[in-house]
Design a protein around this nucleic acid. Structure first.
Length: 408
DNA sequence: CGTCGATTCTTGCT
DNA sequence: AAGAATCGACG
Protein backbone atom coordinates (compact mmCIF):
# COMPACT_ATOMS: atom_id res chain seq x y z
CA UNK A 1 0.00 0.00 0.00
CA UNK A 2 1.81 3.02 -1.22
CA UNK A 3 2.09 5.74 1.37
CA UNK A 4 4.10 8.93 1.41
CA UNK A 5 7.54 7.32 1.15
CA UNK A 6 6.62 5.04 -1.72
CA UNK A 7 5.10 7.88 -3.68
CA UNK A 8 8.13 10.03 -3.10
CA UNK A 9 10.42 7.22 -4.20
CA UNK A 10 8.34 6.78 -7.31
CA UNK A 11 8.77 10.45 -8.09
CA UNK A 12 12.51 10.24 -7.54
CA UNK A 13 12.63 7.17 -9.70
CA UNK A 14 10.85 8.89 -12.55
CA UNK A 15 13.13 11.90 -12.39
CA UNK A 16 16.16 9.68 -12.30
CA UNK A 17 15.24 7.38 -15.13
CA UNK A 18 13.48 9.85 -17.38
CA UNK A 19 16.09 12.53 -17.12
CA UNK A 20 17.18 13.41 -20.66
CA UNK A 21 14.64 11.07 -22.16
CA UNK A 22 12.39 12.39 -24.89
CA UNK A 23 8.95 10.89 -25.12
CA UNK A 24 6.69 10.93 -28.12
CA UNK A 25 3.66 9.38 -29.67
CA UNK A 26 0.39 8.52 -28.13
CA UNK A 27 -0.03 8.07 -24.44
CA UNK A 28 -1.66 4.70 -24.22
CA UNK A 29 -4.32 3.79 -21.71
CA UNK A 30 -5.37 0.23 -21.03
CA UNK A 31 -8.86 -0.73 -22.06
CA UNK A 32 -9.96 -1.74 -18.62
CA UNK A 33 -8.95 1.42 -16.84
CA UNK A 34 -11.79 3.82 -16.16
CA UNK A 35 -9.44 6.73 -15.78
CA UNK A 36 -9.42 9.33 -18.53
CA UNK A 37 -7.46 8.98 -21.72
CA UNK A 38 -4.64 11.45 -22.04
CA UNK A 39 -3.96 13.43 -25.17
CA UNK A 40 -0.95 15.65 -25.27
CA UNK A 41 -0.50 17.76 -28.36
CA UNK A 42 3.26 18.10 -28.25
CA UNK A 43 5.01 15.70 -30.61
CA UNK A 44 7.93 15.40 -28.23
CA UNK A 45 8.08 15.96 -24.53
CA UNK A 46 9.93 15.32 -21.34
CA UNK A 47 8.55 13.91 -18.10
CA UNK A 48 9.28 14.97 -14.56
CA UNK A 49 7.58 14.11 -11.30
CA UNK A 50 6.80 15.67 -7.95
CA UNK A 51 5.15 14.20 -4.91
CA UNK A 52 3.12 15.57 -2.06
CA UNK A 53 1.76 13.13 0.45
CA UNK A 54 0.19 10.29 -1.44
CA UNK A 55 -0.16 12.21 -4.66
CA UNK A 56 2.23 12.30 -7.57
CA UNK A 57 2.17 15.00 -10.19
CA UNK A 58 3.68 14.27 -13.57
CA UNK A 59 4.69 17.18 -15.73
CA UNK A 60 4.90 16.67 -19.46
CA UNK A 61 6.78 19.43 -21.17
CA UNK A 62 7.18 19.94 -24.85
CA UNK A 63 10.68 19.35 -26.16
CA UNK A 64 12.49 18.77 -29.35
CA UNK A 65 13.24 15.33 -30.63
CA UNK A 66 16.90 15.98 -30.03
CA UNK A 67 16.40 17.44 -26.64
CA UNK A 68 17.00 20.81 -28.11
CA UNK A 69 14.49 23.24 -29.46
CA UNK A 70 12.65 22.63 -32.62
CA UNK A 71 12.31 25.52 -34.99
CA UNK A 72 8.62 25.66 -34.64
CA UNK A 73 8.79 25.49 -30.89
CA UNK A 74 11.71 27.82 -30.77
CA UNK A 75 9.68 30.34 -32.59
CA UNK A 76 6.93 30.25 -30.06
CA UNK A 77 9.28 30.19 -27.12
CA UNK A 78 11.02 33.29 -28.29
CA UNK A 79 7.87 35.07 -29.10
CA UNK A 80 6.11 34.69 -25.82
CA UNK A 81 8.55 33.94 -23.12
CA UNK A 82 8.16 30.22 -22.69
CA UNK A 83 5.10 28.86 -24.33
CA UNK A 84 6.12 25.29 -24.58
CA UNK A 85 3.16 23.03 -24.27
CA UNK A 86 2.81 21.64 -20.83
CA UNK A 87 0.47 19.22 -19.17
CA UNK A 88 0.25 17.90 -15.65
CA UNK A 89 -1.32 14.68 -14.61
CA UNK A 90 -2.14 14.04 -10.98
CA UNK A 91 -1.93 10.45 -9.80
CA UNK A 92 -3.29 8.71 -6.77
CA UNK A 93 -1.78 5.29 -6.24
CA UNK A 94 -4.74 3.68 -4.56
CA UNK A 95 -3.58 0.53 -2.90
CA UNK A 96 -1.34 -0.93 -5.56
CA UNK A 97 -0.19 1.83 -7.88
CA UNK A 98 3.42 2.25 -8.94
CA UNK A 99 5.54 3.46 -11.81
CA UNK A 100 7.99 1.29 -13.62
CA UNK A 101 10.16 1.76 -16.65
CA UNK A 102 10.32 -1.27 -18.87
CA UNK A 103 11.12 -2.41 -22.31
CA UNK A 104 8.25 -2.08 -24.76
CA UNK A 105 8.37 -5.80 -25.24
CA UNK A 106 7.82 -6.37 -21.57
CA UNK A 107 4.90 -4.20 -20.64
CA UNK A 108 3.77 -5.14 -17.14
CA UNK A 109 0.57 -7.05 -16.95
CA UNK A 110 -1.32 -4.33 -15.14
CA UNK A 111 0.11 -1.31 -16.87
CA UNK A 112 -2.74 1.13 -17.34
CA UNK A 113 -1.02 4.19 -18.71
CA UNK A 114 2.08 4.19 -20.88
CA UNK A 115 4.46 6.85 -22.07
CA UNK A 116 6.76 5.82 -24.90
CA UNK A 117 10.28 7.08 -25.19
CA UNK A 118 11.44 8.43 -28.50
CA UNK A 119 15.16 8.67 -28.31
CA UNK A 120 15.57 5.52 -26.32
CA UNK A 121 13.83 3.03 -28.43
CA UNK A 122 11.65 0.55 -26.64
CA UNK A 123 11.67 2.33 -23.32
CA UNK A 124 8.29 2.80 -21.68
CA UNK A 125 7.18 4.50 -18.50
CA UNK A 126 4.24 2.57 -17.08
CA UNK A 127 1.71 3.37 -14.44
CA UNK A 128 1.11 -0.08 -13.04
CA UNK A 129 -1.85 -0.78 -10.82
CA UNK A 130 -3.07 -4.37 -10.43
CA UNK A 131 -6.01 -3.51 -8.23
CA UNK A 132 -7.05 -0.46 -10.13
CA UNK A 133 -7.86 1.74 -7.21
CA UNK A 134 -5.40 4.21 -8.55
CA UNK A 135 -6.62 7.35 -10.29
CA UNK A 136 -5.28 10.04 -12.53
CA UNK A 137 -6.64 13.22 -13.98
CA UNK A 138 -5.30 16.21 -15.83
CA UNK A 139 -4.82 19.13 -13.47
CA UNK A 140 -2.10 21.53 -12.49
CA UNK A 141 -2.78 21.43 -8.80
CA UNK A 142 -2.68 19.11 -5.85
CA UNK A 143 -6.04 18.02 -4.57
CA UNK A 144 -7.37 20.90 -2.48
CA UNK A 145 -8.78 18.59 0.14
CA UNK A 146 -5.38 17.16 1.01
CA UNK A 147 -2.90 18.70 3.37
CA UNK A 148 0.80 19.51 3.09
CA UNK A 149 3.46 16.85 2.96
CA UNK A 150 4.61 15.91 6.44
CA UNK A 151 8.11 15.03 5.36
CA UNK A 152 8.86 17.84 2.94
CA UNK A 153 6.56 20.66 4.03
CA UNK A 154 6.87 20.17 7.74
CA UNK A 155 6.13 23.73 8.79
CA UNK A 156 3.00 23.91 6.72
CA UNK A 157 2.06 20.47 7.90
CA UNK A 158 2.31 21.45 11.57
CA UNK A 159 0.61 24.77 11.15
CA UNK A 160 -2.28 23.19 9.32
CA UNK A 161 -2.89 20.97 12.31
CA UNK A 162 -2.25 23.57 14.97
CA UNK A 163 -4.67 25.99 13.40
CA UNK A 164 -7.45 23.43 13.20
CA UNK A 165 -7.13 21.73 16.54
CA UNK A 166 -10.56 22.90 17.55
CA UNK A 167 -12.17 21.01 14.71
CA UNK A 168 -14.41 18.21 15.84
CA UNK A 169 -12.23 15.79 13.96
CA UNK A 170 -9.69 16.00 16.74
CA UNK A 171 -12.20 14.57 19.19
CA UNK A 172 -11.61 11.27 17.50
CA UNK A 173 -8.99 8.68 18.33
CA UNK A 174 -5.54 9.60 17.17
CA UNK A 175 -5.26 6.42 15.13
CA UNK A 176 -8.21 7.48 13.00
CA UNK A 177 -7.18 11.10 12.68
CA UNK A 178 -3.79 10.03 11.39
CA UNK A 179 -5.48 8.64 8.30
CA UNK A 180 -7.26 11.88 7.51
CA UNK A 181 -5.50 13.15 4.43
CA UNK A 182 -6.68 16.69 5.00
CA UNK A 183 -4.13 16.86 7.76
CA UNK A 184 -1.95 13.80 7.37
CA UNK A 185 -1.42 13.57 3.65
CA UNK A 186 0.90 10.65 3.10
CA UNK A 187 0.16 8.72 6.26
CA UNK A 188 -1.43 5.35 5.71
CA UNK A 189 -2.12 2.25 7.67
CA UNK A 190 1.39 1.03 8.27
CA UNK A 191 2.77 4.47 9.07
CA UNK A 192 0.11 5.26 11.65
CA UNK A 193 0.88 2.05 13.46
CA UNK A 194 4.60 2.73 13.47
CA UNK A 195 4.16 6.35 14.50
CA UNK A 196 1.96 5.60 17.47
CA UNK A 197 4.02 2.64 18.53
CA UNK A 198 7.23 4.59 18.54
CA UNK A 199 5.59 7.54 20.24
CA UNK A 200 4.25 5.24 22.92
CA UNK A 201 0.75 6.54 22.48
CA UNK A 202 -2.29 4.28 22.80
CA UNK A 203 -4.14 4.34 19.49
CA UNK A 204 -7.49 5.43 20.88
CA UNK A 205 -6.25 8.45 22.72
CA UNK A 206 -8.22 11.50 21.76
CA UNK A 207 -6.26 13.25 19.06
CA UNK A 208 -6.52 16.69 20.59
CA UNK A 209 -4.88 15.44 23.73
CA UNK A 210 -1.95 14.28 21.71
CA UNK A 211 -1.34 17.66 20.11
CA UNK A 212 -2.57 20.08 22.72
CA UNK A 213 -0.98 19.34 26.07
CA UNK A 214 -3.18 21.79 27.88
CA UNK A 215 -6.22 19.69 27.23
CA UNK A 216 -4.66 16.43 28.20
CA UNK A 217 -3.20 17.75 31.39
CA UNK A 218 -6.48 19.14 32.51
CA UNK A 219 -7.94 15.72 32.13
CA UNK A 220 -5.36 14.26 34.35
CA UNK A 221 -5.98 16.45 37.26
CA UNK A 222 -9.67 16.39 37.65
CA UNK A 223 -12.74 15.39 35.83
CA UNK A 224 -13.84 18.94 35.88
CA UNK A 225 -12.53 20.60 32.86
CA UNK A 226 -12.23 23.88 34.57
CA UNK A 227 -8.80 25.21 35.25
CA UNK A 228 -6.10 25.73 32.77
CA UNK A 229 -3.21 23.56 33.74
CA UNK A 230 -0.03 25.22 34.80
CA UNK A 231 2.26 22.26 34.86
CA UNK A 232 2.35 21.26 31.31
CA UNK A 233 5.92 20.19 31.07
CA UNK A 234 5.79 16.59 32.03
CA UNK A 235 5.05 14.72 28.92
CA UNK A 236 7.58 14.61 26.20
CA UNK A 237 5.10 16.15 23.85
CA UNK A 238 3.91 18.76 26.28
CA UNK A 239 4.88 21.66 24.14
CA UNK A 240 2.92 24.81 23.84
CA UNK A 241 1.13 24.92 20.58
CA UNK A 242 2.17 28.46 19.97
CA UNK A 243 5.79 27.83 20.71
CA UNK A 244 6.55 24.58 19.09
CA UNK A 245 4.01 22.13 17.91
CA UNK A 246 6.70 21.10 15.49
CA UNK A 247 8.39 19.41 18.40
CA UNK A 248 5.40 17.24 19.04
CA UNK A 249 6.45 13.62 19.07
CA UNK A 250 3.76 12.33 16.76
CA UNK A 251 4.18 15.13 14.26
CA UNK A 252 7.93 14.82 14.09
CA UNK A 253 7.58 11.08 13.66
CA UNK A 254 5.28 11.72 10.72
CA UNK A 255 8.23 13.43 9.11
CA UNK A 256 11.15 11.42 10.41
CA UNK A 257 9.82 7.95 9.78
CA UNK A 258 9.04 8.84 6.21
CA UNK A 259 12.47 10.31 5.66
CA UNK A 260 13.97 7.24 7.22
CA UNK A 261 12.10 4.96 4.88
CA UNK A 262 13.00 6.98 1.84
CA UNK A 263 16.64 6.70 2.79
CA UNK A 264 16.30 3.06 3.59
CA UNK A 265 14.86 2.11 0.27
CA UNK A 266 16.41 4.59 -2.07
CA UNK A 267 19.57 2.58 -2.43
CA UNK A 268 17.94 -0.48 -3.86
CA UNK A 269 15.21 1.24 -5.70
CA UNK A 270 14.91 0.02 -9.24
CA UNK A 271 11.34 0.71 -9.99
CA UNK A 272 9.98 -2.07 -7.93
CA UNK A 273 11.04 -3.52 -4.66
CA UNK A 274 13.42 -6.36 -4.96
CA UNK A 275 13.62 -9.05 -2.35
CA UNK A 276 16.24 -7.32 -0.37
CA UNK A 277 14.36 -4.05 -0.21
CA UNK A 278 11.21 -5.84 0.79
CA UNK A 279 13.04 -7.69 3.51
CA UNK A 280 14.60 -4.53 4.76
CA UNK A 281 11.23 -2.88 4.92
CA UNK A 282 9.87 -5.83 6.84
CA UNK A 283 12.58 -5.62 9.42
CA UNK A 284 12.18 -1.87 9.63
CA UNK A 285 8.60 -2.34 10.77
CA UNK A 286 8.31 -2.68 14.50
CA UNK A 287 4.57 -2.86 14.91
CA UNK A 288 2.55 -3.18 11.72
CA UNK A 289 1.66 -6.82 11.04
CA UNK A 290 4.02 -8.02 13.70
CA UNK A 291 2.80 -11.22 15.35
CA UNK A 292 3.61 -9.92 18.81
CA UNK A 293 1.32 -6.93 18.33
CA UNK A 294 -2.41 -6.68 18.71
CA UNK A 295 -4.79 -5.38 16.12
CA UNK A 296 -8.33 -4.12 16.01
CA UNK A 297 -10.62 -2.70 13.40
CA UNK A 298 -11.19 0.93 14.19
CA UNK A 299 -14.26 3.09 13.68
CA UNK A 300 -13.48 3.66 10.06
CA UNK A 301 -13.05 0.01 9.36
CA UNK A 302 -9.28 -0.06 9.17
CA UNK A 303 -7.03 -2.39 11.04
CA UNK A 304 -4.88 -0.69 13.60
CA UNK A 305 -1.81 -2.52 14.90
CA UNK A 306 -0.56 -1.56 18.31
CA UNK A 307 1.18 -2.65 21.43
CA UNK A 308 -1.05 -3.41 24.35
CA UNK A 309 0.58 -2.24 27.48
CA UNK A 310 -0.29 -3.68 30.83
CA UNK A 311 -1.27 -0.88 33.20
CA UNK A 312 0.70 -2.50 35.99
CA UNK A 313 3.95 -2.35 34.18
CA UNK A 314 6.31 0.41 35.06
CA UNK A 315 5.40 3.28 32.81
CA UNK A 316 8.87 4.69 32.72
CA UNK A 317 10.13 1.70 30.89
CA UNK A 318 7.79 2.62 28.14
CA UNK A 319 8.40 6.30 28.10
CA UNK A 320 12.10 5.77 27.74
CA UNK A 321 11.54 3.47 24.87
CA UNK A 322 13.20 0.49 26.44
CA UNK A 323 10.66 -1.98 25.41
CA UNK A 324 12.83 -4.88 24.61
CA UNK A 325 10.86 -7.85 25.72
CA UNK A 326 7.89 -7.21 23.58
CA UNK A 327 6.34 -10.57 24.06
CA UNK A 328 6.26 -9.97 27.75
CA UNK A 329 4.79 -6.58 27.40
CA UNK A 330 1.86 -7.78 25.46
CA UNK A 331 -0.64 -8.84 27.99
CA UNK A 332 -3.98 -10.24 27.25
CA UNK A 333 -5.65 -7.35 28.87
CA UNK A 334 -8.16 -6.66 26.22
CA UNK A 335 -11.73 -7.27 27.11
CA UNK A 336 -12.48 -10.83 26.26
CA UNK A 337 -15.29 -10.21 23.88
CA UNK A 338 -13.10 -8.11 21.69
CA UNK A 339 -10.73 -10.81 20.84
CA UNK A 340 -13.07 -12.60 18.56
CA UNK A 341 -15.89 -11.55 16.44
CA UNK A 342 -16.23 -11.73 12.78
CA UNK A 343 -16.95 -9.00 10.46
CA UNK A 344 -20.60 -8.41 10.81
CA UNK A 345 -21.06 -5.77 8.22
CA UNK A 346 -19.30 -6.87 5.17
CA UNK A 347 -20.58 -5.71 1.90
CA UNK A 348 -22.03 -9.06 1.14
CA UNK A 349 -24.02 -9.24 4.29
CA UNK A 350 -27.09 -9.27 2.19
CA UNK A 351 -28.31 -5.99 3.49
CA UNK A 352 -26.93 -3.63 1.02
CA UNK A 353 -29.01 -0.58 0.70
CA UNK A 354 -31.32 -1.63 3.44
CA UNK A 355 -32.37 0.31 6.43
CA UNK A 356 -30.49 -0.02 9.59
CA UNK A 357 -33.40 -1.60 11.37
CA UNK A 358 -32.99 -4.64 9.25
CA UNK A 359 -29.66 -5.53 10.61
CA UNK A 360 -29.52 -4.10 14.06
CA UNK A 361 -31.64 -6.69 15.77
CA UNK A 362 -29.55 -9.46 14.34
CA UNK A 363 -26.35 -8.16 15.71
CA UNK A 364 -25.57 -9.27 19.14
CA UNK A 365 -24.27 -6.65 21.47
CA UNK A 366 -20.57 -6.49 21.72
CA UNK A 367 -18.15 -4.50 23.69
CA UNK A 368 -17.80 -1.09 22.18
CA UNK A 369 -14.90 1.19 22.66
CA UNK A 370 -15.05 4.91 22.60
CA UNK A 371 -12.23 7.30 22.51
CA UNK A 372 -9.93 6.60 25.37
CA UNK A 373 -12.04 3.84 26.80
CA UNK A 374 -10.63 3.17 30.24
CA UNK A 375 -11.16 -0.53 29.81
CA UNK A 376 -8.98 -0.43 26.84
CA UNK A 377 -6.47 2.28 27.36
CA UNK A 378 -3.58 1.56 29.55
CA UNK A 379 -3.75 5.13 30.65
CA UNK A 380 -6.93 5.56 32.54
CA UNK A 381 -5.45 8.86 33.54
CA UNK A 382 -6.39 10.27 30.24
CA UNK A 383 -9.87 8.94 30.26
CA UNK A 384 -13.02 10.84 30.95
CA UNK A 385 -13.06 12.71 27.72
CA UNK A 386 -15.53 15.39 28.31
CA UNK A 387 -16.27 16.53 24.85
CA UNK A 388 -16.36 13.22 23.15
CA UNK A 389 -19.17 12.70 20.81
CA UNK A 390 -20.98 9.61 21.74
CA UNK A 391 -21.10 8.93 18.09
CA UNK A 392 -17.83 7.19 17.86
CA UNK A 393 -18.96 3.89 19.18
CA UNK A 394 -18.27 1.31 16.63
CA UNK A 395 -17.70 -2.27 17.35
CA UNK A 396 -14.05 -2.93 17.40
CA UNK A 397 -13.00 -6.33 16.29
CA UNK A 398 -9.68 -7.91 16.20
CA UNK A 399 -8.17 -9.21 13.05
CA UNK A 400 -6.60 -12.56 12.77
CA UNK A 401 -3.02 -12.05 13.61
CA UNK A 402 -1.71 -13.22 10.33
CA UNK A 403 1.65 -11.96 9.39
CA UNK A 404 1.66 -10.59 5.94
CA UNK A 405 4.55 -9.52 3.97
CA UNK A 406 4.99 -5.85 4.19
CA UNK A 407 5.10 -5.20 0.58
CA UNK A 408 3.61 -2.23 -1.02
C1' DC B 1 -25.09 21.60 7.06
C1' DG B 2 -22.11 18.47 9.56
C1' DT B 3 -21.45 13.87 10.91
C1' DC B 4 -21.76 8.98 10.50
C1' DG B 5 -22.16 4.59 8.55
C1' DA B 6 -22.54 1.79 4.56
C1' DT B 7 -21.20 0.88 0.05
C1' DT B 8 -18.42 0.74 -4.01
C1' DC B 9 -14.40 -0.10 -6.77
C1' DT B 10 -10.81 -4.43 -7.75
C1' DT B 11 -7.75 -8.34 -7.62
C1' DG B 12 -4.06 -10.98 -5.66
C1' DC B 13 -2.81 -13.52 -2.01
C1' DT B 14 -3.67 -16.67 2.14
C1' DA C 1 -6.90 -6.29 2.74
C1' DA C 2 -5.96 -1.72 0.94
C1' DG C 3 -7.38 4.29 -0.14
C1' DA C 4 -10.80 7.25 -1.15
C1' DA C 5 -15.07 8.81 -3.18
C1' DT C 6 -19.95 8.77 -2.76
C1' DC C 7 -24.55 8.29 -0.96
C1' DG C 8 -28.33 8.19 2.28
C1' DA C 9 -29.86 8.87 6.98
C1' DC C 10 -30.08 11.65 10.82
C1' DG C 11 -30.36 15.62 13.97
Amino acid sequence: MPEGPEVRLASDYINHICCNVIFSGQIVKSDVSKNPSITFAAPFYTITGQSRGKELLLTLKEADANNGNSEEMNHRVKKECDSRLEMRILFGFGMSGSFSVTDSDNIPKHSHLRFYAHNKSSMVLNFVDPRRFGTWRVTNNWSPNRGPDAAFEYELFCNNIASHLNASLFNKPICEVLLDQKYFNGIGNYLRAEILYRAGIPPFTMARNVFDPSTSQSKNKSKKNNSKPKQETKMSNAVKIEGGIENNKVLSLCRDLQLELIGLRAESWHGSFDEEATARFGSWLQCYCKPEMKNLVDNIGRTIWFLVVCPLIDKKSRMTGSRKKKSDDVKEDLPKNQAKGKRGTDKKSGTKGKKKEDITPIKKPRKRIKVEDPDFQESSKNSEPKGISKGSTRVLRSRKNSSKKGNT
